[in-house]
């Protein structure tokens, strides 16, 4: 359940933040969510990867759909014969990895703080 909540936070906060700030703030969104929810680093990374991936994939997918793939096809040619689908995947991957790496850092940061506070329990 908390996994899902962390994912929703990434999607909701990410959506809001991305309207107004640079693309790389996805890393901060991932870090914030992971720090707050305090999960295993690997789990946090995965949730970030999935959350960031979905958040970047859906608007790109819709834009591509409404545009009939016109621009994605041209950009694909420009980048060396990538298909529009591959571009969508690449988009989701970059969104995902940025968020995932941020989440990993956030989660690792939380561990670090716990250690300095002397509280060394493994999160569930």
């Amino acid at each position: 359940m908390k996994h899902l909540l962390q994912l929703i936070i990434i999607l909701g906060l990410g959506w809001f933040v991305q309207q107004h700030s640079p693309w790389w703030t996805m890393a901060l969104v991932g870090a914030f969510a992971a720090f707050t929810f305090h999960k295993r680093r690997w789990t946090s990374f995965m949730i970030g990867l999935i959350g960031g991936g979905i958040l970047w994939f859906i608007p790109a997918y819709l834009a591509n759909l409404e545009n009939n793939g016109l621009l994605a096809q041209k950009i694909g040619v420009l980048f060396g014969e990538l298909s529009p689908n591959l571009l969508l995947l690449l988009t989701a991957t970059i969104g995902g990895i940025t968020t995932g790496l941020g989440a990993w850092t956030g989660s690792a940061g939380r561990y670090l703080m716990q250690k300095t506070k002397g509280n060394d329990t493994q999160p569930k």
Binding site: W23, N67, I94
Partner: peptide, 21 residues
């Protein structure tokens, strides 16, 4: 800048003009 360029919030997807709406 690939992150900026691929982001659906800032990048080229934003230039994909809907063809009917």
């Amino acid at each position: 800048r690939m992150g900026h360029f691929l982001s659906p919030f800032t990048g080229f997807w934003k230039n994909a003009t809907p063809d009917s709406y």
